[in-house]
Computed example of a mutant assay.
Amino acid sequence: MRTLVTGGAGFIGSFVCDRLLKDGHSVTAYDDLSLGRVRNIEQNLSNPKFRFVEGDILAPRMDEVFATGEFECVFHMAANSDIARSHESPSIDLDRTFMTTFRVLEAMRKNGVKQIVFASTSAIYGETTGRINESYGPLIPISHYGAGKLASEAFITSFAENYSIQSWITRFPNVVGPRSTHGAVYDFVQKLRKTPGSLHVLGNGQQIKPYLNVEDLVQGIMLVWTKASEKVNIFNIGADTRTRVADIARIVIEEGPAPAEIVYAGGDRGWIGDVPEFEYDTSSIRQLGWSPSMTSDEAIRVAAAAAWSEQV
């Protein structure tokens, strides 16, 4: 199948490209390299089934790529992923999380592309109690990122109905692993590189969430895409186990070169818009035959080791 991966040089998008190529599909990766890195996809550049295009989704070049690509499916992975940054500048998520989705949908409509796999998020649910399943509501996101993803989901479902576009909406928790450019594990490693011996942690360390290895995530995405057959398919993909921020800090230090003191800023969350605690119900995707290969703590440890070994 001829596929387009937006954000294809990014953390998750590059792993999606790897997997699609492994499964025999043709892949065009489209990325403006604001967060993505060419080194994430350099292993694919010599593959005749792979093409990389540098460009902004909101720029005219996107229309040219669609017009010539003859795509059958779009994996829309591109978005702003810095929740804290958008607190200071809300237009970031309007433009880079919602409008990028709308532009992709419009290009699909104009060019007759009938499948979209969308990277959504647990942030659409807001602050919750109990285990969250896909029918949880009302959905009250507390970050601009979550709001942009929820608005994107709404337009995907309306385009599905109006233009016969089949969609797979996959709601991720916190994803960790090699090639990451943000998140607690990555941030802690960078802080320790700058100030060895002392790790400053936002919040009180008691925030607790499921963390999922990126390759487990991609395995789940592919299973959903190939096995779920409704017009609109919505799945939580995540671990049933969770990790506290205090344990992330401990694991990052254990995987690093030297001991360090942990200093907490205090408060129940890291920043405005941060959901300090949630837990997923993943029974729907487990019924398709998927389960993660790692616990949340194991995924954190693998990610920490990778972050310490990667070039800055």
Rank of each mutant, 00 (worst) to 15 (best):
T121Y: 01
V185D: 08
A9L: 07
S46I: 04
Q311I: 10
A228G: 00
H182R: 01
A160V: 03
F278M: 14
V218K: 03
F98D: 05
S167F: 15
I83N: 02
T68L: 14
A228L: 02
G146E: 15
E261G: 13
V5L: 11
T101P: 04
D274G: 15
A307F: 03
G267Q: 06
M62Y: 02
S284G: 14
D281L: 09
I156E: 00
S89A: 08
R250G: 04
A265P: 14
E106T: 07
T100M: 02
G183A: 06
E54Y: 08
F188D: 15
N204A: 14
P196I: 05
V189R: 11
I140C: 12
D32P: 03
L150H: 00
N236S: 00
G273N: 10
N133R: 12
G10E: 11
Y186N: 14
G177A: 11
I41F: 08
P90M: 05
K110C: 08
S180V: 04
T6G: 10
E161N: 09
G112I: 03
R171E: 06
A249H: 07
L223F: 02
P48A: 12
R2I: 06
T241C: 02
G10N: 03
H76C: 03
D240I: 01
L33G: 11
F11R: 02
Q219E: 09
D187W: 04
M1Y: 04
Q287D: 06
G203Q: 06
E127T: 07
I142T: 07
G205R: 02
D95G: 00
N174A: 14
A151C: 13
V263C: 07
F66G: 10
I57D: 00
R244G: 05
